[in-house]
Design a protein around this nucleic acid. Structure first.
Lengths: 205, 205, 205, 205
DNA sequence: AATGAATGAGCGTTCATTCAT
DNA sequence: AATGAATGAACGCTCATTCAT
């Protein structure tokens, strides 16, 4: 079982991640992975001793790849709601771009939450990984609100941490909505929705 | 294929719903349903021509059962945040109680979201059903905020609809958090979390 | 999982027994059983929940079928070595005939001991079944020697039980020899060997 | 393909023999051999072109190692049943000791007969090797009985060859019994059983 | 001499589904 | 209305083997 960063191993991880994100864990079979990688069953088992091992490895890979501080410290740029929104949307855009590169696809069609939930059902220990990914986003939002506070744009008495968490779930809801109600997966539609969510959020706080 | 409300048909729906909620759609096989119902394969196929048909029927059943206005008009009772919280928690408690009766189990161990997502992946047309269930909850929250507004407790300029939606996702997030981070499924833990979420929310608006 | 004596269940048991005896447990795959029975994979799994369950069921079947007293009380017929040999060879012949009928084959080509050993390796609890089958044969031999003793043909002081056990292993050795050294599986060759073994045995006691 | 007595080659043979004896041929995979030797797949294929080739080589190695006259001529020491038993048990003890050294294990847990039978099923030509190993033991017993005969301890008219063969199978049966019925693999238990078998045998001849 | 990446046939098993009764 | 026998595609996984290095 190869552990280090062989090209093939990396390639399998990448391909599996794509499939898992698009269709969920349960709906991806070795057959699918084989078809998409062009490798043989044995080759995949050479690197990952079981489907569950592949799953946890994919998660590690996801953490490494997307958990990195793709978030520049936003404090300098954010002074008011307007700049908040601009910075946030830029970050989101960059995230999309990274994801598209990672998934090697132009489409955004994927179902992150399904994948996460199935993964957790399969292997409880992945909870902390998923939670780490989420916390990463919340922390970024918190920094943004802190910047606002520093610039006295935030109404008095509002806690950046609470605001961040709240906004995070609101955004999460937005994504779910996109998934549930609409069919579009275009980046610009997402951006529009994010924008609307931010505006709404600023209205209510 | 029997359509009407035979006892058996209803019994299959109820049992399947329990299993689906607990383990997700993909992880429930006919074998499981047979074991839990004590019926035979043929009996289930007699009422539902395929697993997908069973799934959609279960969703209809879920809509009928839990979509009903278990929500009394809250306007009369809600005058301030305190009463809002009291009413909301009572409603939630009632919901839990209904669910426990429906699932015939004391435990709350179920994974609603996983089931919903899997169902949608399996059958796109279920999106609207899920969305209907969600909207139902959002509308209740909206009514609550409207009551506040009527009683002038709400800060000026806050739109009840926006607040409702925002709070809904915040609560959704709370549930996800319970699932992700903690292990407890006790009703009182949920209540405590809901309570905290409400308090936090009132702080930031 | 059907427990009772369905025809199909019986047919699977019979066919599997044939295959197991001929080639050993490990070398018989579901594919082989399917090919030989003409049934589908699912049909076999309908009756036996795993290959190991099939194995233990085959053993029960073997015990029921061949463990029965195909041994008439030999006391009346046995008075001297000559009659001993005659009775024994007749019994053996009958046994062969039963086996041929059971296996529905004219050939005797099978490898009982390999099957027994593999079975035990696979499932320790089968030890007692194998041992029961062996003891059954030893007890028959003991009865034969007792008859001799009653007729004062046995040299004084020889214990029928010891003689029986000894002769049993000698015969077992003969069978192994047939398997190891010669290629023939003809009934008459076995009979000739058994005959020789008995003669030799009578010479040394 | 290296043929000569490289250390590595020898090491592979030894390790494979250990595994084959303990678990049978079919239940030992390359994976197991690799784990136990610490070598790579390629290394084993370098010396043995297939698993069957490894098997036949292991048999040759077994013949060379254990087929050697670890049996000193017993004629001088054996004069009566008592000395027969003493010499035999000593020889057996030495054999155990050799085996333990060969297998590099204190345990006697192995299943010689299963291995032999599987080997023969796999490769018919190994019959003669197995038979050679057996004949070697029978010949030793024959020498013992001959010594008795020379010393007039043997009842008249008993053929040493017949006695040897008979005793051999009786002992074989004893070993099988140990395997089937009891769980112990301790040397002293084997010794006690061998002793009893000899005593019984002397009673009936 | 030795490694380990890669292959693909085959394994035991589970699954949703059909259908005669 | 209900049973359960039977199907066969697909699943995750193991295996002996090949081969470039």
């Amino acid at each position: 079982m190869q552990k280090e960063g062989t090209d093939t191993r990396h390639f399998i991880l990448e391909t599996s991640l794509q499939l898992f994100l698009q269709r969920g864990y349960k709906d991806v079979s070795y057959r699918d992975i084989i078809k998409k990688t062009g490798l043989s069953k044995g080759a995949i088992y050479h690197y990952f001793k079981s489907k569950e091992h592949l799953l946890t490895s994919v998660f590690e890979f996801l953490l490494e790849t997307t958990g990195q501080p793709d978030i520049e410290d936003p404090e300098n740029e954010i002074t008011d709601y307007e700049s908040f929104r601009r910075v946030f949307l830029e970050t989101k855009k960059a995230q999309f771009r990274n994801f598209k590169m990672l998934l090697k696809t132009k489409s955004l069609k994927f179902n992150k939450i399904l994948f996460f939930l199935e993964a957790i059902i399969e292997n409880e220990s992945l909870k902390k990984n998923v939670w780490k990914l989420m916390k990463h986003e919340i922390r970024f939002l918190e920094k943004c609100f802190s910047a606002l506070k520093k610039n006295k744009t935030l109404p008095r008495g509002k806690d950046p941490a609470l605001l961040a968490e709240n906004l995070f779930w609101m955004l999460q809801g937005t994504e779910m909505l996109m998934f549930f109600v609409q069919k579009s997966d275009l980046e610009k539609d997402f951006m529009r929705m994010y924008n609307k969510t931010l505006e709404d959020f600023f209205k209510i706080i």
